[in-house]
Every structure is written in C-alpha cells, then in structure tokens.
Amino acid sequence: MIIEVEKLCFGYGSHKVLNDISFNVGKGKLISIIGPNGVGKSTLFRCILGLIGEYSGIIRIEGNDIKKLSAKSRAHLMAYIPQIHYPSFNYSVMDMVLMGTAHQLSAYSKPGKKEMEQAWKALAQLNITGLAQRGFSRLSGGEQQLVLIARALAQQAGIILMDEPTSSLDFGNQLRVLQQIKNLTKEGYTVLISMHNPQHALTYSDYILALFDGSIIADGTPQEVINKDLLSRLYNVEVQIAKVGGDMLIVPSGERRS
C-alpha cells in the first residue's frame, strides 16, 4: 500500500474535524474524496501532506511515518496541486513548473540543466510544451490547471494530491483535465483528489471515500459507494441514479423534503 492512514483523529481545540479515519491506497489508483464543503477534506489533505503535525493516529507514505520525514523527503514522495488562485506575479509557465524542482536543490542554487529537462518532460507529458514561455496569468483556467499538474510532475513524486482541480473550470476543461489525471494513473502515478462533483468521482475514480462530519461514511468502488441515499445524506438533495449504457448518471430530482 502506498498511502496508509490508520485511526487518524484531528481537531482544533474541542472541535473535532477528523474522527477515526482509516483507509489504504494502492499504487496507480485514482481516489476521490467526496463530501460537502467544510467536512474536513482539506484538513485531511493537510494531515497527509505533513502540514499539520498534531493529529493522533498514523499516516504512512510508502511505509514511512510522515511525522518522521523531513519536508524535503515528503516532497520527494508527494506533490500537491492547489485550487487555481491568481498568483501575485505573472510568472512564465516555465518558471512556474521549475518551482516544482525546489526540493532537489540546495538553498543557494537555482534550477540547472537537469531541472530544465525535468520541466520540459513534465510539459511534454501533458502536451503543453507550447505554453512554456507564456505568462501563467494569461492562460485559460484549464491551461493553468494543466500547468500546476506539470509542476507536480516536475517534482517527480509518485503521489499527487489535488484539491478540487475542476472547481473553476468550464465544462470542456473539466473533462479534459480529469482525463489527463486519469491518464497519469495509468502511467503509475497515485492520485488523491477532493472532488466537488460526485458525477466526476463516479466517472473517473477507481475508489471513492465519502467524508461526512469528519468520518468516512462509505468507501469502495464508485459502483459500491454511490447511491441515492448516500448522496442525499451528504448533500441534502434528492437525486436519482440513472443507467445509460454501462454508465451511471446522477440526476437531480429537486429539493429534499424536510
């Protein structure tokens, strides 16, 4: 198992955010975490990334307890892709992607030939080498998200954590970005995504964790997990699940009666 989370609990003071979370993730899988806003998805990510140390339980990445790893070693294992936010300065795409190589450089050096090659390779993997000299702020949302993914690839970590990668994208870009992410898992990357849209989780993931009030209330393959009772409990709406061909489709059926 590449990610192992055992009995993870975390809270701010008396407020419990995560309660007894346990799950395992195998290599090359796409795992979606679904649940309403404020349910602890981001906190769970922060724990796994090692940004929060005061939790109880154990998180192991490739067998190493992350509390015992340095920031540098964690960066070797895991990369993080935030939601798109507008950077204060308009860096070129190349400059952005090169930042992903920081963990392998000493504090006094800058990216050299080897890092440049890694960056070009990452851009090539996503077919966006043409963007290299463009300014990041001037790209479309979908292109920006791909650049952030390229930055994670340049970091050369096998595990990628993504925080709602499609939240600000239009319909076409959402599907294109998700397809690229799916392709990465076929190349052996393990991807953990917090997913806004349960339909995307259903269509693209290998495994789904449903998080509610800080606990996992369902986990398994999309077909096992996604059903109308779970979705109405998570999001407080009534839905129908339709079958089209072999695919499952989530169809809204109005407000939940209270």
Binding site: A71, P87, A102, S109
Partner: peptide, 23 residues
Amino acid sequence: FVMRWRINILTLSDEESNAMGIN
C-alpha cells in the same frame, strides 16, 4: 543574492511551498 531563486517560491501559498519541501 544567493537565495534569490527561492524568493519565487514565497509568492506561492504556504501549503504549496511546504509541499515542495521548502520551509
């Protein structure tokens, strides 16, 4: 001067820079 490349990384969010192995 010697750490100038790293200043770039400070323009990112703390989550991003920490996940890149930078304190």
